[in-house]
Design a binder for these strands. Structure first.
Lengths: 339, 339
DNA sequence: ATTTGTCTTGCACGCGCGTGCAAACCGTGA
DNA sequence: TCACGGTTTGCACGCGCGTGCAAGACAAAT
């Protein structure tokens, strides 16, 4: 700040460190690359010179030169869902631990996804991780056109495109077990509360539950559809939908595609419809967001194996070939008071 | 994918577009810069060639050449707080609208902040926005050493360093009004629930409320301190703290530094201590997170003017000089059922 | 036809660093 | 002493684009 305002406020570069340490610029670079072949002596020289000058390598220039940016784009939508915070925290943390920067791209809606991906590709991200409701692997690939994102990974969602990597929870196993649990606990007239119908592959939770229940009881439960994974929206939809259905037969259980829907449903049941949870209607969610364990909701739900999923993501990102296919991890039922 | 594997999978560069359009590389660049002087005719030629080739400028190279990365680092901690999701969504959205990329840097804790800032500086971010509990402008500046981040902005927090820009809510005005409201509503023995004592400037909410109450009633209300802005932690602390205080005189109101604390406090009151809210004890929060409007909490709180704050942030980031000082915006009391 | 002013285009140079190779170095054994 | 293998260092070149300026194009004015 109070330095002389001569050329001193130029940013320190590898050349400066090189002259200070009495080596070449390239030796400075090697000192900062852990795999490089460099003698212990000169690495020490370089490092002490770098420290005294306050030098750190410029990752922008490094990216340009090496064609590897060490940047991962994280494309997100659905910020109403509290589960998103868990994912953002976890992924940004493990990325940083691995030395990758996180480029957060906010996708407003479905139509925005391709443009979001292009925005990421312009920064030469090494990989793009899609964590959102609205996307379609094929559309994404098409949008890329001549540009390239080395890896395209769908996180916490399945993807129907075979050339896209997907890391997700075993929805099928989870909803089979939820159906079994509901059956065992004696519930007989469930309703499934589903999120937006985006693409076929996303419907696995709904289809699995409906199919499993039908296999057990010969009839398929009804559904309530909510346009976004939003707590207030789910509340409104359940408030509207339930009285109509209740005329025929009131449900004794709402199985919800995720916790955001479940929490909204509970709000509607208790505060709009005057029903007790779980006394009149039980509720099961999916995700195990922080709120699910709060006493106000005490939600029985499915815990996504975020640890395992994040670890798998790191493995996929580290691999230098492009792996493909689906990486599926089991979760576990968290039994609480709501069902 | 099924293309011939000749040199075709090289990424399209401005030179390719230039030869395709029959102009020079620099004209291509100009076509993509909106302020550039270029004839409408050649811009059209360039754009159609670019479109057919799938060309988009490489922002990495542009950053290196222009010394402007159009990247904003967003340094965050405190991911337990649901308010963080609002901020992340809003900032990443407006940044994208302005053409800036968002580099999300997850700060694990206070000691991690300087290193997080350095990580950002290595990518030549044009600005770093600090949105967290744990930081100290002076420490940050010191950590930077010879490196430079052009702008250092503290968002939704005050900063004691005079050379740091701060964009925040008018905490003083807010807590004065909250105190007045509490007084008017007839509450007489409030307790203030405070977050971690990091730096003096952060304590404004607490100090303002305590001071204002003392001015009105001659005595300073007691405090409960919580180490993180976390709902379960706040619940645990209130559960422990309240019975002890209640022996002397049970509070009739908990004024909480933010909604995370308020929600945790309500959980403790209702579910651990068997007290009714607001019947036995009222609760006031701060932030107006989504949950505050849920019927389960129905929390009276202070709405931070996120629109205005985000707009101010954009203005500050757009300015080519380095503005400084504090940009303070009023919020508004949201009256709900909890107090 | 010439000049003048304005708009448009082309270009040398550099941003800071990595790649791949060649040169220099070092120690060892013959 | 010399040759030889392995290790360490230096360097030409390029990554893709922006900056600043000079040259060119063009129209209006003389």
């Amino acid at each position: 700040m109070t330095d002389q305002t001569d050329l001193t406020d130029r940013v320190v570069t590898a050349d400066d460190v090189a002259t200070a340490a009495g080596v070449s610029r390239w030796t400075v670079g090697r000192a900062f690359r852990k795999d490089a072949s460099i003698s212990e002596k000169s690495r020490k020289k370089v490092m002490s010179a770098a420290k005294s000058l306050g030098y750190l390598p410029d990752l922008l220039a490094a990216s340009l030169a090496s064609d590897r940016s060490n940047l991962v784009a994280l494309l997100c939508d659905d910020f109403d869902n509290p589960h998103k915070l868990l994912v953002l925290e976890r992924l940004s943390r493990v990325f940083r631990e691995e030395g990758w920067g996180t480029l957060l791209v906010n996708m407003r809606d479905a139509s925005d996804a391709p443009s979001a991906l292009l925005a990421a590709s312009q920064r030469r991200v090494d990989a793009a991780v899609l964590n959102g409701t609205w996307f379609d692997g094929r559309v994404m690939r098409a949008a890329l056109g001549a540009r390239r994102v080395r890896k395209l990974i769908v996180f916490a969602r399945t993807s129907e495109s075979p050339d896209t990597i997907s890391i997700c929870c075993d929805d099928v196993g989870a909803l089979r077990e939820i159906a079994r649990y509901a059956d065992d606990r004696g519930y007989r007239s469930p309703i499934f509360v589903a999120g937006p119908d985006t693409h076929s592959a996303i419907l696995r939770r709904k289809e699995t539950f409906l199919g499993e229940w039908k296999a057990r009881h010969g009839r398929q439960p009804p559904c309530i559809h909510v346009d976004h994974y939003s707590i207030p929206l789910a509340r409104a939809r359940v408030r509207e939908a339930l009285p109509g259905l209740a005329a025929a037969r009131r449900p004794d259980l709402l199985v919800c595609e995720n916790d955001a829907l479940a929490i909204g449903a509970m709000d509607a049941l208790r505060h709009d419809l005057g029903l007790a949870v779980p006394g009149d209607v039980a509720v099961i969610g999916f995700d195990d967001v922080g709120l699910a364990s709060s006493p106000a909701y005490d939600l029985t739900t499915w815990r996504q194996p975020l640890d395992a999923m994040a670890a798998a993501l790191v493995d996929v990102l580290r691999a230098d070939h492009e792996p493909s296919g689906e990486y599926v991890f089991p979760g576990e039922l968290v039994r609480r008071g709501s069902a």
